[in-house]
């Protein structure tokens, strides 16, 4: 019990197949209490499928998972009052008003009428929806819908919150606000598991798991992941990136090469010694390029850990 109090979610070899497709492939997870745990992965990497299995909505093809000390999906009914789930797609009722949506869910969760009203009022204030109370949910903006969905997911004060790409339909400013709300929840003791495909969001999480093609390819704190990246990152500033690219194409130890405006970002094998010198060797003297080694970011981590799958 003390262990499951520490680890809110644990899974061992969690796997889900759809026909011949392996959507989630032997995923082992440990999510500690009151953490914001990020699920980073491109579309189709199995984030939603994993969350659904953890909620007891999908049966695992293989493996096991315990959520809040309960086996899923067998004991999933025991989770219903303790877990909040914000689906990837907006799943509230578009033809009901903001208040009606929350009131309905409050009734489904058997919240007492007086408590329900005050809780809804609090949430509408907190998520800046008080002036939208009577508006139909279908006519809200992307950011408002997202805040309503979050309010709905936390209405019954769950211990554990699943957020599936909560910010995908939202502008950057709203996204920042949203993350403030998420950390507020974590401060209050809620454990949050949040999937995303935005690097800068992933970087905010306490802990991070990177998913690719259903496999968990790396996990740890964002800092750990960046520190431990198995590559050297080299940045080249140049007037003629196209020409430089051509010249670097055949370089030994080159893992990947990405262009960002006038900069080229190279990932080189750790074994490559004296990387700056090696790169300059490849370039013409008249290329006019400045070469330097830089700190890896999460994007680099991602490229490195998913490289085997891509090739």
């Amino acid at each position: 019990m003390s262990e499951s109090a520490e680890q809110v979610i644990r899974s061992q070899g969690l796997t889900r197949r759809f026909g011949s497709l392996v959507a989630v492939d032997h995923v082992d997870l440990e999510v500690p209490k009151a953490s914001v745990y990020g699920f980073l992965g491109p579309n189709g990497s199995g984030k939603t499928t994993t969350i659904r299995m953890l909620c007891g909505l999908l049966e695992p093809s293989e493996g096991k998972a315990q959520v809040l000390g309960l086996e899923v999906p067998k004991e999933a009914e025991g989770l219903r009052r303790r877990v909040g789930y914000m689906t990837q797609r907006f799943s509230l009722f578009e033809d009901l008003s903001v208040f009606e949506n929350l009131d309905f869910l409050g009734e489904i969760h058997s919240l007492k009428a007086s408590h329900r009203r005050s809780r809804i009022d609090t949430l509408l204030e907190r998520y800046r929806l008080a002036d939208r109370r009577k508006q139909r949910a279908g006519t809200l903006s992307g950011g408002q819908k997202q805040r309503l969905a979050l309010a709905a997911a936390v209405l019954h004060e769950p211990e554990l919150l699943f957020l599936d790409e909560p910010t995908s339909a939202v502008d950057p400013e709203n996204r920042r606000d949203f993350w403030e709300s998420i950390f507020q929840l974590a401060d209050e003791g809620t454990t949050v598991l949040c999937s995303t495909h935005y690097m800068e969001e992933a970087e905010r999480c306490h802990l991070l798991a990177i998913l690719d093609h259903g496999k968990l390819v790396a996990n740890g704190t964002p800092q750990q992941l960046m520190d431990d990246v198995d590559a050297t990152v080299v940045e080249i500033q140049t007037e003629d990136p196209r020409r430089v690219r051509e010249q670097l194409a055949g370089m030994t130890g080159l893992l990947s090469l990405a262009q960002l405006g006038n900069r080229l970002r190279l990932l080189l094998h750790r074994e490559v010694e004296n990387p700056v010198w090696q790169v300059e060797e490849e370039l013409d003297i008249d290329a006019g390029a400045t070469v330097q080694v830089v700190r890896p970011n999460l994007e680099d981590v991602f490229v490195v850990v998913t490289r085997d799958e891509v090739s």
Binding site: T87, S91, L92, I108, S110, A152
Partner: peptide, 13 residues
């Protein structure tokens, strides 16, 4: 189809 079933079945209903 509208996705609300996914929401409903994660409630105690």
């Amino acid at each position: 189809e509208r996705g609300s079933l996914e929401l409903l079945i994660t409630t105690p209903m």
